[in-house]
Design a protein around this nucleic acid. Structure first.
Lengths: 318, 318
DNA sequence: AATTATCTTTGTCCTGGACAATTTGGGCAA
DNA sequence: TTGCCCAAATTGTCCAGGACAAAGATAATT
């Protein structure tokens, strides 16, 4: 009998659900409401906030604009129309990238791949990726296809032209292709040096960069041990010790604050033995502002062979 | 000049870091402090909490005991010795599993694999896993080896016999083997039905269960589309629509609170078309307390073939 | 132009109170 | 004993509104 459902099935989402959906912390949602007058959730019987779906959508758009560099004071509180206008007007993150790949390139066109993503055709995309990988060699595949394509996907998402789930699916497929490639490579270099431990810090859940690095390093004759993403600092130090790693390699994106990243690196550098190398890379600008003591910052994946060569110079016994 | 380092290199972790490390919400940490007198963090210059490493360790132990069914009032506030005693006294999570695999079984022994994990020998472990997979068939490999082994690893971790990084490495290797297997299977069933969309909700970052499900379902002739982990609710609904999914399958662990999980499922069920199935599984006890309207709870991976068969019964046109 | 100092913005943390949902334990009937 | 129901205790999450440090923007100086 009755009491089937609280009836107010869509009176709106509670604040915890909005935090999950938008990635905006509960404290942030409350303080925006106080300062900018948006969002303006309804209240349930207990006085708790209930966010209507439309406001959640607007929050998601705002989130994208913030990721693109806008400041909250300018965009929170704008209505949907103004937000959409801003979105379309965003300057591309990588104006150079597009220019660098003129039409007529015989590479499998980025645009074609983007179209396959937007067409929700995973099989076609997977085939295209595998085909490209076999055709152009692993290093070129990564440097000339995966890197620019990932940038393009990120940018398309920022502009609202791709949904999050489309980016997720793209990431899954590329990961699969890269893992395949690594698996095919690994047996040859099981005991190569340097022995490199790969992972990311807690908070950093983006593992695609890690896979690309693992593939390129394996190609350079290193033996790679990947712990996946989000390993606590203490465990990284422990793992480096028990696996006799010559180098710890970490990948970053810009999701975390630069300060936090540098602080973590400082602590990790202290906990690692001095002779263990610490290589860092990824799209986190704080890594490259100034040289970090005892840390090798790798700006671009194409610099990796050089870094490995450098290591061999400094460790001639291997 | 000076100002090289704040000197207080390890005055303790801020509350946000403890939340990440332990999975305990900031609000919970504060309310425990108020009610039970533990934890009792130091304060930095600004009056913010700084948790010493020892307290964080104790919190992690407490978290494990809570997951094992203890109540906060009984365990928060016990000293380390009492906690350890409780921990060792915990009934094993899977008393049956050990009994079900008597010595002399010709299976690659779980113990041998656990030893390989503890010995930090990834190559041996990978070879053993691959060998087992080829020898026993994919379904048996998953149901009889990977599932009990993962349980054993989780339990060993809970008892403090394995470090997090050892679990991470194990997960990476098993994931690799499973992905390999799926890749070898997939081409045969590209358009099989049901077409199943796999992912996890935001907050749930454990993807191994998802891989096992994908493998078993592919084996049953389904075509699987995996979005990886942590897809927002709205995107799951969108993705199900554009990919013409017959079923959405979600995997859970016990890291999130049961209430939050059920609330999310309720919302998702509303947003999905009625004819789209919603299958859920994993080690989150809230899923199995009572039947959920419009949701199929799969208690064990070995039930999957039955669930697929059931689906075919109800959709004879496929 | 480049660097430094000052003002603004913004996310996170704080306190202490409240409450709803779950769990526990007792009382009572079968 | 077992099963069921209600009161009491437990427990996680939410709230308000204040505070502040880090980061960004702007102005002043070299």
């Amino acid at each position: 009998m009755s009491r089937a459902v609280p009836a107010a099935a869509d009176a709106g989402l509670p604040i915890a659900a909005v935090e999950r959906e938008t990635g905006l912390a509960k404290d942030t949602l409350r303080v925006w409401e106080r300062r900018y007058g948006f969002p303006q959730p309804l209240r349930d019987g207990a006085g708790n906030r209930r966010y209507p779906a439309a406001q959640v959508e607007r929050l998601k758009v705002i989130r994208r604009l913030l990721d693109a560099g806008q400041r909250p004071g300018k965009v929170v509180g704008l209505d949907s129309a103004a937000l959409q206008a801003l979105l379309s007007g965003q300057a591309p993150l990588t104006p150079a990238a597009a220019a660098r790949l003129p039409a007529g390139s015989e590479l499998p066109s980025l645009q074609a791949m983007l179209d396959a993503i937007a067409a929700h055709d995973p099989q076609t995309l997977r085939r295209a990726l595998t085909h490209a990988r076999l055709g152009m060699g692993l290093a070129s595949f990564i440097n000339e296809l995966v890197v620019p394509l990932s940038k393009a996907v990120g940018e398309a998402w920022m502009r609202g032209r791709l949904e999050i789930f489309e980016e997720h699916l793209y990431t899954e497929l590329v990961s699969g292709v890269l893992r395949d490639a690594i698996a095919g490579l690994a047996p040859a270099v099981e005991s190569g040096r340097p022995r490199i431990l790969l992972t990311t810090l807690p908070q950093e859940q983006h593992g695609l960069g890690l896979l690309m690095v693992a593939a390129l390093l394996t190609l350079e004759g290193c033996s790679c041990i990947s712990l996946g993403t989000q390993t606590p600092l203490g465990d990284i130090a422990l793992a480096a010790a028990v696996h006799d790693a010559d180098v710890v390699a970490l990948s970053f994106t810009s999701v975390q604050s630069g300060t936090a990243v540098l602080e973590s690196l400082r602590v990790l550098r202290i906990r690692l033995p001095g002779q263990t190398g610490l290589w860092v890379g990824g799209s986190c600008s704080a890594l490259y502002h100034k040289p970090l003591a005892g840390i090798t910052a790798v700006r671009s994946l194409s610099d990796l062979p050089g870094v490995v060569a450098q290591w061999h110079c400094e460790h001639p016994q291997h």
